[in-house]
Design a protein around this nucleic acid. Sequence first.
DNA 1: GCCGTTTTCGGCCCGACTGTTTTCAGTCG
Length: 572
Amino acid sequence: MQNSEVARYFEDLADLLEIDGANPFRIRAYRNAARTIEDLPASVESLAAEGREALMELPGIGEDLAKKIIVIVETGRLPQLDELQEKIPSGVVEMLRIPGLGPKKAAAVFRELNIETLDQLRAAAESGEVASLKGFGNKTAESILKGLDQIETSGRRFLLADAMAEVDEITADLLEIPAVGQAQPAGSCRRRKETCGDLDVLVTAADSSKVMDALAGHRLVTDVLARGDTKQRVRLKSGIELDLRVVPEESYGAALQYFTGSKEHNIVIRRRAQERGLKINEYGVFRDDERIAGATEEDVYAAVDLPWITPELRENRGEIELAENDKLPQLIELADIRGDLHMHTTATDGAASIREMIDAAKERKLKYIAITDHSKRVTMANGLDAKRLRKHWKDIDKVRSSLSGIDVLCGIECDILEDATLDLPDDVLQEADWVIAVLHYGLNQPGEKIMQRLLTAIRNPHVDMIGHPSGRLLTRRPGAEIDYETLFKAAADHGVLMEINAHPSRLDLDDVYAASAKRHGIPVVINTDAHSTSGLDVMQYGVYQARRAGLEKKDVANTRTLKQFQRLLRSH
DNA sequence: GCCGTTTTCGGCCCGACTGTTTTCAGTCG
């Protein structure tokens, strides 16, 4: 059973308990547990097999939750969840997705009006029944109707690359306003999380109404959802929502820290403040009523005896302990990248020729690249069979011999077929400078079969790297069911590298598993998987993901010179 | 439900905005 499945039980239980009016701290305990399990690099199922004590080592998992996890893993059910689902119809849980309608109101329409589905809710909102409930009114009914329309289209998450493009444009435009001092994006976007649910922008301004007017009239904005003295919420044309916060200069650092999150990181930071007799809010760090810090983030962290922590690490996954012991990693930067070892040309589904890709790589100051077109199984992309591949390599060789300033490897992105064989014979793979093995098809196969395929590839002596290991496409489809512990152990044994695919829809390995690969001593390679010259520009997103995983320059193989890289390949 | 260099009980981060309210509950981030 996948960790995310186990986590789902506790998320669902927490939702139901909220509607049921349970103790909020108990609900939080379930949500914390869900998150811990979700973020766990190891398989919670195998941990459960070791017994209760092993599970209780995990933060936020006590005796009761450990028992529940074992029950879930062994039976596929959770009795408490079954009972509550019996009591509360699934339609009532769905109501929580309506903005402005939380567990209390969902419970009210269910209990008072016997409403069990979203359709019934719509009818009751239209008839005025909802508005007549105590604590409800016409505005609430209207907002429910609007929310019902909205959840059909939104509620989704957005790719980091798309979110950043929008929030950066808006931030730059706000900075043009004379009344604005500082401005920058915060939230998950600033933490470079692979997807963002909404956008946050923080500004300092003498007159907040001028800033809010400007935002309301911005070309990307369609609706103003809420507006107060310091906070405004708008919806963009793309459907994503954006929060604007206006704060005074002396609070800018505290607000930036606060609105960058993550929530989990901030809870721990605030607890540290409490332990020191301090209080942190978005206006500053206070001892009693006296502000002792707040203008910069550095000051806020210093107030709780910590060095500044880079936003990418702020997930409460151990960064605070590292900061405390002065062990924060020196994270990799884009400028550290020397090579790009995954890209396509017109030989298969790329838009640019060999020569164009090489020139574009040189423009981007890359010292070496690998051309890695598809193998024949990818018919849609005009994948290469042995004969065409050998001809392609000859073409590459011709171009590279006439060029200086960049090294070019003759590579291949070879499919791992559904029957766990490779799409090209060994004698062909042997001739390659660089072999990436990947899953493209049959991603829904059972975990065992998937692992058999990956392990076959890893054991093949010609395979150098597993590309986009899970095959996921963010916001569109989940990845294959992979046992990462087994995968990484095998890769470490056979000297096979792991990719962080930098394409904004992939970012695969993800942050949690990239960190795990590092712990297994496996060098990670960050590649663009470019299908055009501009596709080479997504390297930045792969670097963000690597930073979120805590990777340093030395952990990423393509920060080395080509000679060092090839030595690593042979020795590893 | 978890957790403990003040605690095995009694805490658990903190504030803005909205709508329905005459002082606050619910929701959200």
